[in-house]
Structures are given as structure tokens and as C-alpha cells.
Write a protein that binds this DNA or RNA. Structure first.
Lengths: 195, 195
DNA sequence: ACCTGAACACCGTTCAAGT
DNA sequence: ACCTGAACACCGTTCAAGT
């Protein structure tokens, strides 16, 4: 009996469970998918899931990690595009996970693992936004607030999926708060300064 | 037997149930409070709640209506203050309901009543923000996007309660996106807008 | 180590029965 | 019309028992 056959199967079966949970959590919803459904989709007995994961929240964390890693890998190929295009792409890329966004917020209040993941994710998002805003010329004094607004706007767009047009409008305004540097929808002068 | 004694008691008991649910939903959480706890707090049998409300979601809607009506009544006394102060006040006033905000988002996907309430609420918030942004001199062309950003930022502040300082920063930047009209960091005196 | 059938505790909701 | 005790269906999790 080879020593390392089991461990390999273990990885595979774990992945199958996470894959099934990802599909069900994003498509049907976390509260709406019983553990029995995940088990059935993965082809194991319900309680087998508890061999691989402490509880349903731990499984959710595995799903979140998986989904985030994929998205980051995709994003890696786009770092040379303009700032607002990257933002727009990220929002559209993540929109399919809007149910995960809401459930993370809902469970943050009660599940320490989800809370920790949520905090980590915010740190990551803030770091990425900091780079973008700096490159867009946002002054250092308003950088922190701009980042916060950026995070909230992105979350908002994910939570309330709307038309492509309004998405573009919102991202443009977010990425170039001064009003300049905008790609002209039909060129226009910007109305700045108090009056 | 007086004809109208019963209806009066009915109102009262309904109110007691809603009051108990409000306290428990905001303090403990929606998913975390069983119907039995609400019934116990209101002094009725569990299934009596179902005489007054179709189901738990309908009770949640009653809670939301109650809480929103109170907040709007409070807000009515503040309409003469400057725009960004009103915004800040609203956020701080609503912060105690952050658990309601998350549960509304979570249940919007599955409960038609909650979905309808949520849509109504967004319309209301957008109307109020439209007035504020217009008075702050936001140009008509970027008004729609500004309103959306405003809604997202307010929701974000409610979902992620932070320090008073960062709250103020974010609201200031949101209310005066041009960058002018801001109170200088050291100085506490407010530059009254409009002039 | 890995997997399972059966049971447990809990919860939203319903029902038949009372006044 | 209003209220209730008891039951039902469902779900996350655990346990004792298997390999």
C-alpha cells in the first residue's frame, strides 16, 4: 500500500466538496443550501463534510478563498490597462458573487472565521485601491477617505447589480473624482470650484 | 360588550410584538432570534405571532417600517442644518440598525416582501440625496452617478461602522466632491456653504 | 485516517381545538 | 375573532460504529 495514495485522494475529495459548495452558495445561496445538498452534489455522505471542515462557516471560508484566488489570478493579466477600466472589470468579474458578499456581511457578526476573512479581504481591497487612487492623482490628504469610498462603492455595485451604463458612470466618477481625465462621452468642460 | 374594545387591544398587542422584534432583531440579529424569543418577550404564545403576521419576513417589514418612520421623524427637525452635517447625522442615527441593513440585503434575494421594501427604501434615499447634491452644486450630468455613490457610501458606513473621524472624512469628501468648501483639517469652524 | 447511518437539538410554520 | 398546545418538516451537527 503506497503511503501517499490517501493524501492525494483527500485533496481531490476536499476540492470536490468546495467546488459543489461554490456552485450552490453562489447560485442558490448559503442559507438556502442545506449541507445535504452539498454532500449529494459532491457524492459523499452529509457528515463526511464534517471530516474535512469544522462547520458550514469553515466551508464558506474555503469557498471564498477559492473564488478570490481565481479572481486575483485573472486580474493579474490586466495590470497594464487604465485604472478605471481595471476597476470596471473587477466589478463585473465579481458581480456573480454578490450572494457571497451579502452572506459574508450577515455572518461576520456571528462567525469569527468569517469575520477574520472579511477583515483580511478589506485590507487587500484597500491596498489595491490605494495604488489606483495614487496613480490617478488623488492628493495624499484625501487618500484614506477616497479608499473607503472606493471600497463602499464597489461593494454597493456588487450588492445592487444595475445597468452597464450606470456602472460605467459610477466607476468613472469614482476613479476621477476631480472630474478631469475623463474619457469624453462627448467632450465637455468640467465644472469645478465653488459657486 | 363594546364593539371597539377588541380592535384597540389588537393594535396594542401588535405593537408589543413589533417592539419586541425590533429590539431583538437589532440587538441579537434576525437569524439569531427564534420566534419563540419574540413571543416570550411580547408575552404571547409563539403561534399567536402568526395571527398578526404572515411569517417572519412580514414581521421584519413591520420592524423596518417602524424604525424608518422614527428616523424620518427625527430627521424632520434637522432640515435647516448644512448638507454634510445632515448626512453625518443620518449615518450616526442609522448606525444602530446595521444588522437590519445586512439582513435586508440577505433576504432581498429570497423574500418578495423584503425585496419590495428594499426597492422602496432605495427610491426614498435617492430622492433625499438628489436634493442634497443639487444644493451642493453637483452638476446635472454627474448627478445620477453621485446619487448612486452616495447611497453606496452610506450603506457602506452602516455596514462597516468605523471611527468618528474617518466617518467625518468620508462624508465630507462625499458631500463636496470638488474638493473645495472643505473645512481645513486644523480648523473646526465650518465654512457655511451656499456662499 | 476516513466514512457512514442514525440520532439530537433547534427552528419556522401549521393545525385542530379551544374561547 | 383571537389564542393556544402539540405536531410537522427541515436543518446543522454529533456520535457510535464501521473499514
Amino acid at each position: 500500500m503506497p503511503r501517499n495514495r490517501r493524501p492525494q485522494n483527500r485533496e481531490e475529495k476536499r476540492d470536490e466538496i468546495v467546488a459543489a459548495a461554490t456552485e450552490l452558495f453562489t447560485g442558490t445561496g448559503y442559507d438556502e443550501t442545506p449541507m445535504t445538498a452539498i454532500a449529494a452534489a459532491a457524492g459523499v455522505a452529509t457528515n463526511t463534510i464534517y471530516w474535512y471542515f469544522k462547520d458550514k462557516d469553515a466551508l464558506l471560508v474555503a469557498v471564498l478563498d477559492r473564488v478570490l484566488a481565481e479572481a486575483l489570478a485573472d486580474a493579474g493579466t490586466r495590470t497594464d490597462e487604465p485604472w478605471s477600466d481595471q476597476l470596471l472589470w473587477a466589478v463585473e468579474r465579481l458581480e456573480r458573487y454578490s450572494r457571497l458578499v451579502t452572506v459574508v456581511h450577515a455572518r461576520t457578526a456571528i462567525s469569527p472565521v468569517i469575520d477574520a476573512w472579511h477583515a483580511d479581504f478589506h485590507r487587500l481591497a484597500e491596498d489595491m485601491l490605494a495604488g489606483g487612487f495614487r496613480s490617478a492623482g488623488v492628493p495624499e490628504e484625501s487618500l484614506r477617505a477616497s479608499i473607503q469610498i472606493g471600497v463602499f462603492v464597489i461593494e454597493g455595485l456588487l450588492l445592487h447589480p444595475g445597468s452597464a451604463e450606470s456602472r460605467r458612470e459610477v466607476i468613472d466618477l469614482l476613479a476621477h473624482p476631480g472630474g478631469d481625465r475623463r474619457h469624453p462621452p462627448g467632450d465637455r468642460t468640467r465644472t469645478r470650484s465653488g459657486g
